[in-house]
């Protein structure tokens, strides 16, 4: 039972942290009223997903605690003879694309937030909704 717990739950601590980071981000995206806070939450949410994917690429086992188990995916013949494995580079490349897309979405969203501030004079979501409704009634 304890061995099962250590192998199946505790050694996968990267994935648990990724879950918590994703939950923090999605909470901020939904519950915060300030639009810039929502953007910060969106950034944290995206980074949590990157952490999940790159943890999938780290294929070394944790059998020897404290030992480096997966090397960067660089040609290293002595390391192969010593029994080192390298991390899977495919998720790395996917997440490299994701980081650039994340910067682009942040830039566009910030431009929209600045434009909304010029239009409504505030970046609080409920005040924007109220002003919008006043404009509709007129």
């Amino acid at each position: 039972m304890l061995e099962w717990f250590v192998q199946e739950v505790f050694e996968k601590y990267n994935f648990w942290t990724a879950i918590f980071i994703i939950l923090i981000g999605i909470y901020a995206t939904i519950a915060k009223g300030n639009l810039l806070k929502k953007l910060i939450g969106l950034s944290i949410f995206q980074t949590g997903i990157f952490l999940f994917y790159i943890s999938l690429g780290d294929i070394g086992s944790l059998a020897n605690w404290g030992l480096r188990t997966a090397t960067p995916p660089i040609l290293w013949e002595e390391g192969v003879e010593l029994g080192y494995v390298y991390a899977n580079p495919l998720p790395h490349v996917l997440m490299l694309t994701g980081i650039v897309v994340s910067a682009a979405t942040t830039g566009v969203a910030l431009a929209l937030v600045v434009r909304m501030y010029q239009e409504y004079g505030t970046i609080e979501e409920d005040e924007i909704m109220r002003k919008e409704m006043e404009l509709d009634q007129r």
Binding site: N14, L36, L39, S43, T47, F50, I54, S55, G57, D58, A70, T71, P72, P73, Y86, A87, H92, M95, L96, I99, V100, S102, A103, T106, G107, L110
Partner: peptide, 22 residues
């Protein structure tokens, strides 16, 4: 995690450019 390419891209784009934009 052995992803050095992602690490320096994150340091340049995620930490540098995004913070400057914000």
């Amino acid at each position: 995690l052995g992803a050095s390419d992602v690490a320096f891209t994150e340091a340049a784009v995620g930490a540098g450019t995004s913070t400057a934009l914000m």
